[in-house]
Design a protein around this nucleic acid. Structure first.
Length: 229
DNA sequence: TTTTGATCATCC
DNA sequence: GGATGATCAAAA
């Protein structure tokens, strides 16, 4: 790795690159890409994700396309503890509250986003300084039929709540693998959605997240519960 | 303002 | 300790 590479031409090339990054520290990656290492992530929550994007030649920026458009692959860093277990839920995509009632699981943005994901575990134990945290072995994943069905069940439950328009009931408690949580600048952020009476009203913007239990199962299955990373 | 990238802070 | 709700930054 020298500087930001061109986008990978195919899955194999992407996987090879990702595998080559395994074991490297964030400090090493940052230096190779001429990026400053922040003191901590409190005010740079997306820094690790952006660093890895750059290291792998993902399309920079915030466009609503997969990170590797040509390959149809989404990149996700996955913070893990010393045992290799995810320490955070994973943001999937914004919940399109106003039109969600017209969408089925088959054409849902959640399903599209998760169709093919390159997971990159990253050490995230709080006792580890950012500089020494290392990347783990990549996992290129698509939902199994069982996973797809389970996610579809959650989608139906969650979208039913949205369709009913009772946003006070739309909490993160619903969904086995998927959940809906606020996703905005802060608690004052608002977007428009149809309420119980069918008229537009202001409510907090939401996003779909994968629960840790789900991503934990993914990595466990792939790494055989071994040390991982 | 919305999209991307997520983690933080607090409560249970 | 884990989950929920709140929050942070950059880019377009």
């Amino acid at each position: 790795m020298s500087s930001a590479p061109l986008p990978p031409k195919n899955e194999a090339e992407l996987l090879t690159r990702a595998a080559a990054l395994a074991g490297h520290s964030l400090k090493a990656l940052a230096e190779a890409l001429d990026r400053r290492l922040p003191e901590d992530l409190a005010h740079h929550k997306g820094w690790v994700g952006e660093l890895v994007e750059q290291a792998l030649g993902a399309t920079a920026g915030n466009r609503p396309t997969p990170d590797f458009p040509r390959l149809g692959i989404e990149l996700k860093t996955l913070p893990v503890d010393a045992a290799g277990h995810p320490t955070e839920s994973t943001f999937v995509t914004a919940a399109p509250l106003r039109i969600i009632g017209e969408l089925s699981w088959a054409d849902s943005p959640v399903r599209s986003k998760l169709a093919r994901v390159l997971w990159i575990p990253v050490e995230a134990d709080p006792v580890l300084p950012l500089a020494v945290r290392r990347l783990g072995s990549p996992l290129l994943w698509s939902p199994s039929p069982e996973e797809d069905r389970g996610l579809a069940v959650d989608w139906e439950e969650l979208t039913t709540l949205v369709r009913e328009g009772d946003f006070s009931a739309l909490t993160a408690h619903h969904g086995r693998w998927l959940q809906v949580r606020p996703k905005g600048a802060d608690s004052r952020a608002r977007t428009q959605a149809y309420g119980q009476d069918g008229t537009l009203e202001a409510t907090a913007p939401r996003g779909f997240y994968l629960r840790r239990s789900f991503t934990a199962a993914l990595v466990a299955a792939h790494y055989h519960g071994g040390g991982g990373a």
